[in-house]
Computed example of a mutant assay.
Amino acid sequence: MFQLEKFSLKDKVSAEEWQVRVDLAACYRLVAEHRWGDLIYTHISARVPNTDHYLVNAFGLTFDEVTASNLVKVDLHGNILDGSPYTINPAGFTIHSAIHEVRHDAQCVIHLHTKATIGVATVRGGLKPWSQYAMFSLASLSYHGYEGLAVNAEEKQRLQSDLGSTNHMLLHNHGGLTLGPTVGDAFMRFYDLQRACEIQMDLLQSGQPVIEIPQEIVDGIQQQANVVHSGETGGQKAWPAMLRRVYKLDPSFCE
C-alpha cells in the first residue's frame, strides 16, 4: 500500500525553489478543485530557477494530496534527485521533458486529459473561434497527432517541432497542454483553453447553428489577446487570487 509520508523541505531548499514548490502544489490543488484531474495520472511540471532540474508529482498521489514538500525533483531524463522517497511516472514525464528540453522560456508545463480538451482535439477542425475564451488560445495554438503512448525519442522530436513557439497545444485523441513563464501563466492559459473547449462541445451538442465571428474581428481579438492575456494582466495578475483560494480550501498544500 502506498504510504503518504509527511515531511517538510522548507528549510532544506532555496527560497526560490520553495516558492516554485508552493506555486506548483497550489496548481495541482486547483486542478483537483476544478475536477480536471485523471486519478493519479497526468502531470504538471515546473523548472527549479537557475537549474536544469524540474519538479513533478509523485506517482501514486492524487492531485489533492500534492504538497510543496512531496513534489519530486528530477533531471531532464527523469532521474530522481536529492533522495526523494517517492517515484515518478517515467512515461508521464516524457512529454514534459521534451518541452522543457527546447522551450527554455517555459517554467511550467501543464498536460491534462480533460473531457473537453480531448473532445475538441478529436473533432475535425479542432478549436473554433466561437467564444472569447477561444481567442486567447487560438492566438498561440498548435496540434500534435496521436502516436500512442508518448515514450519514444522520435515522437519527442515531432512534438517539439509541432509545438514550436506556441503556448497552447491540443493533442489529437489525447488532451490539452499549456506552458508559461510562471506557474500562474500556465494555469490561466489552461483555464482559457478548457473553457473554450467546454463551450465548443456544449454548442456542438446543442445542435443549434452557431453565430460566426467575422474573420477580421477574430484576427483583431487574437492580436489583443497576445498582449492582454500575458504578463501582469494575465497569469501573474490572477495568480495571487488563485493562491488565496487554495489557502482557503486547504492550507496543507504549502507544507
Rank of each mutant, 00 (worst) to 15 (best):
G119D: 04
N226H: 09
E5I: 12
H111E: 04
D162H: 08
E17L: 08
E17F: 01
K248C: 04
G145R: 12
V183N: 06
T166F: 02
L243P: 02
Q157M: 14
T178G: 05
M201Y: 03
H113V: 11
R21F: 05
V48L: 08
G145P: 01
Y191F: 15
C254T: 09
L127E: 06
N57F: 00
D75Y: 04
G145F: 01
H144L: 10
I221E: 12
S161Y: 07
R124L: 13
L243M: 12
M169N: 05
I199A: 07
N70Y: 02
H168A: 06
L138Q: 05
G176K: 02
L71M: 05
L163P: 03
S8V: 11
G175V: 13
Q194D: 15
M169V: 09
V218C: 13
E101A: 15
L203R: 03
I199C: 01
S137T: 14
L179F: 03
N79E: 14
P181G: 11
P49Q: 07
P214L: 09
Q107A: 09
Q107F: 02
Q200C: 10
L179S: 02
A150L: 15
P85A: 10
K10R: 15
A186I: 11
S252F: 02
E216A: 14
P181F: 00
F190L: 11
V218D: 03
G126M: 08
I88D: 06
V151G: 03
V246T: 06
S84G: 10
S161V: 12
R47Q: 15
A116N: 11
R21Y: 02
N57G: 13
V102A: 08
L149N: 10
Q194G: 06
A15F: 00
F63G: 02
W18C: 07
A106S: 12
S69Q: 03
S69Y: 01
L204W: 03
K248A: 15
N173H: 15
M169S: 07
N50I: 01
N57M: 08
A150S: 14
K248L: 11
T42F: 02
G119M: 05
G126N: 07
R21V: 04
E65A: 11
A153N: 10
T67N: 08
T42I: 07
T178Y: 07
L39G: 09
R35H: 11
S142G: 12
Y143M: 12
E154L: 13
G234H: 04
E198T: 13
